[in-house]
Amino acid sequence: MLAKFNTGELITTASTNSSRPLIEFVDVAKIFKSEAGVFPALRGVNLTIQAGEFVSVVGKSGSGKSTLINMLTGIDRPSRGEIYVAGTPVHTLNESQIARWRGEKLGVVFQFFQLLPTLTLLENIRLPMDFCDIFPRPERNDRAMALLDLVDLSGEAGKTPARLSGGQQQRAAIARSLANDPPIIATDEPTGNLDSATANQVIELFERLVGQGKTIIMVTHDPDLALRAARVISIADGQIISETRPEKHL
């Protein structure tokens, strides 16, 4: 059954047909308004990310790093500026279009895993395929099994998330983010709730995916983890203050 999907088919490389970068932020600002006044969470961010990059975004609480990734995933929309992801002007889509687009182009991995408690692992991974209808129905079960195998969880396919450890749940969540074979994976503190050994496994999984051509953007406040990425973007008070490429990647 697994033979049906060799790794090449299961995880495809984003087609870089144009010279444009995969992700492009043009002067993106986000301002939260309340009666107490305005709070600028992002102040004019310009950023480009090429296909196949592993980027980490670091910053303190309240620096705007979560807002930045929310802009990318379309979970929140900018007050100003333009965001292009694989050529799609994300800032122009409505909620429903964004949901659909996100399902196809972007895998999201949350800090708290967020698997649906009433579904088995296999069903959790099938769910995005059913929503987006990209893979033909008969293939979906096999594909879900293959993805579980990829994260070493094929033995737990019929279990509900509550019976798994945090690390296992996070790996299943990563498998789910790959369900529709999106070119990009966005993740906010993916290891925040994991011990260091488990966190390491998760990062290794990300590294493998990058090796297979995926683009990964990871928000974290752990400097050690951030250094595992090829490119580290630091944010403070809503602005990019520095960009480094850790030496081991050079």
Partner: peptide
């Protein structure tokens, strides 16, 4: 979460 994984 449903929204995040592509539910319209």
């Amino acid at each position: 979460v449903l929204r995040a994984i592509g539910a319209t």
